[in-house]
Nucleic acid binder design. Structure first.
Length: 540
DNA sequence: GAACTTTGTCATCGC
DNA sequence: ATGCGATGACAAAGT
């Protein structure tokens, strides 16, 4: 600043006499550059809609598991056949993702079964369930529940294999093994959780209710009630944060179009209605409008035409090119846009824009002159180099000084016999002029980078919304599956009969899923005890 | 007149 | 070593 002040003072002293000579023609900006002003409010709210997520769940059903669980016959509780077979051969939950997938599979599986049962198996179930089976049920003797049967229901509810194992008799309690084909299925599916908690409804009065459902499937409940519901809450929150269902279709279209970065028209750089067009528009409107006329005037004055074409990209057409290029919103969608920005160093000013001649002054000083000295049109700030050049009688224009290539510039200097002061000034003018352009380019690049980053933010927000929606769908599926599992449990339990053909009391007995995959009917008092598969196998 | 933006300039860095 | 572009920082002018 001190430097500047000193210099300016010097300028005033040196050039004071010649001010009115300079034609500080007003920058066209005064009249025409207003559009460039606005940096568009492209930061508009992030798109909140999202593509519809396929709500279908449970597509890949472990059919073999169900099939094996669906013997279709009443050879259910076969006491001789050891381990009852409950076959859901679901893969081990290696990860939460796997577990989720298994849930999906199980859900679809159940849906199939339920539909099947409702369509043709209900009657059979009713009859067969009351039909005492000859096959011994896998009942633990101590509870006097021998010969518990699991009739036809097994066929309709493959979750429980009809081949009930006759549990060990030395356990001191009756266990009705309903199913166990292998030990890798259900237990692992449910994270090695003792199925007792899952399959022991508090009251088994034959009707499912909410209380029973809540306590029926503890693992499920934990899954849903803890993690999932939290996530639902998150989703709800996300929804509240601005998701507008009305925009969903629109956003969906955007996603479908694979645009990914489609811009709001209101933020389009070419939007004429927006007083705040995008920054890019600002840039190129500036380059085109703010300096094109100056370039034209320059053309008229630069008769020799040395400048034109001398410096690559400084043709007058360049400004138009830039403007047209960046008016196209498509340029905002891809990296080539940025590449263009980064490599096109000509999109700021035409060659003659700044120093077309010593009498033409670009720059903001015009307005000041209109206020202060409309007659002189002197721009103290931007015109100093020109004034100094004229004072030192530099024999060529500042335009040439700044824009000529190095070789031509040196050649030009060699052609003239210049004093040291003149050479110094010329080099300063060149340095400042180039740096001025560089600064303009730098600022434009910076703004363009911001635009691009903002678009990235929008895109990521859309992705986030989409994923949250998918998560909601998954949670819904889990809930449905949970309910179906509860219903299935209820039906299976209700269908069981002891050796006297009487149903088990839901208050005294419950189904328990052992670690080895078998399902047992055991007293509720023992339900809380974890069934050790190794011991059970020994009992077999 | 304060606050903010725009623009030019300088210093510095890295190529 | 030199030139040159890029960029942060600063200040003046403008809004």
């Amino acid at each position: 600043m001190c430097r500047w002040d000193a210099w300016k003072s010097q300028q005033d002293i040196d050039l004071g006499a010649g001010r009115e000579v300079f034609d500080y023609s007003c920058r066209q900006k005064d009249g025409d550059e207003e559009p460039e002003k606005s940096h568009g409010d492209w930061r508009s709210t992030a798109l909140q809609g999202t593509a519809q997520v396929d709500g279908e769940t449970g597509e890949s059903v472990p059919a073999q598991a169900l099939d094996s669980a669906l013997p279709g016959t009443n050879d259910t509780v076969n006491s001789t056949s050891q381990t009852a077979v409950l076959p859901p051969e679901l893969p081990s939950p290696e990860s939460p993702l796997d577990l989720e997938q298994q849930w999906q599979d199980l859900l679809s599986l159940m849906e199939l079964q339920v539909s099947s049962a409702s369509s043709h198996g209900s009657d059979d179930l009713a009859t067969n369930y009351t039909q005492p089976q000859t096959t011994a049920t896998a009942i633990n003797q101590n509870v006097s529940l021998h010969d518990a049967t699991l009739p036809q229901c097994a066929a309709d509810f493959p979750l429980f294999n009809p081949h009930l194992e006759n549990p060990s008799t030395d356990s001191g309690h009756s266990l009705l093994r309903l199913a166990s084909t292998n030990s890798t299925n259900f237990d692992t599916t449910f994270g090695s959780t003792n199925f007792t908690g899952m399959l022991f409804p508090p009251h088994m009065n034959g009707t499912s209710n909410e209380t029973s459902s809540s306590s029926l499937l503890d693992p499920l409940s934990s899954l849903l009630d803890e993690a999932m519901l939290d996530e639902i809450s998150l989703m709800d929150l996300a929804m509240e944060e601005g998701f507008d269902p009305m925009e969903a279709s629109q956003i969906e279209e955007e996603l479908d179009s694979d645009s990914g970065l489609s811009l709001d028209s209101s933020r389009s750089p070419i939007s004429p209605s927006s007083s705040e067009s995008s920054s890019s528009s600002l840039f190129y409107e500036e380059g085109a409008v703010g300096y094109s006329s100056e370039s034209e005037s320059n053309d008229s004055e630069e008769a020799d035409g040395v400048i034109e074409g001398a410096v690559g990209g400084y043709q007058p057409e360049y400004s138009k090119f830039c403007r047209m290029s960046y008016q196209d919103p498509s340029h905002f969608h891809s990296l080539p846009f940025l590449e263009q920005i980064n490599h096109n160093h000509t999109y700021n000013l035409p060659p003659g824009a700044l120093f077309s001649n010593q009498y033409q002054q670009p720059g903001p000083g015009k307005k000041m002159h209109l206020k202060e000295k409309p007659a002189s049109h002197i721009d103290v700030h931007l015109g100093r180099d020109e004034r100094r050049a004229q004072t030192l009688k530099i024999p060529f224009t500042n335009d040439k000084i700044i824009n000529l290539p190095v070789d031509e510039f040196n050649e030009l200097l060699s052609k003239h016999h210049l004093t040291e002061a003149q050479l110094t000034l010329i080099r300063d003018i060149r340095r400042r002029g180039k740096n001025k352009l560089a600064a303009q380019n730098c600022r434009k690049r910076k703004l363009d980078t911001i635009v691009h980053l903002d678009q990235e933010v929008e895109h990521l927000n859309r992705q986030k919304t989409k994923l949250l929606k998918e998560k909601v769908e998954f949670v819904k599926s889990l809930r449905q599956m949970k309910q179906k599992l509860q219903d299935l449990y209820q039906q299976v339990f209700d269908s069981l009969r002891d050796e006297h053909g009487r149903p088990y009391s839901p208050t005294q007995y419950a189904l328990q899923y052992a670690n080895d995959g078998s399902v047992l009917v055991m007293p509720r008092a023992l339900a809380t005890q974890r069934v050790r598969p190794d011991k059970k196998n020994k009992k077999k």
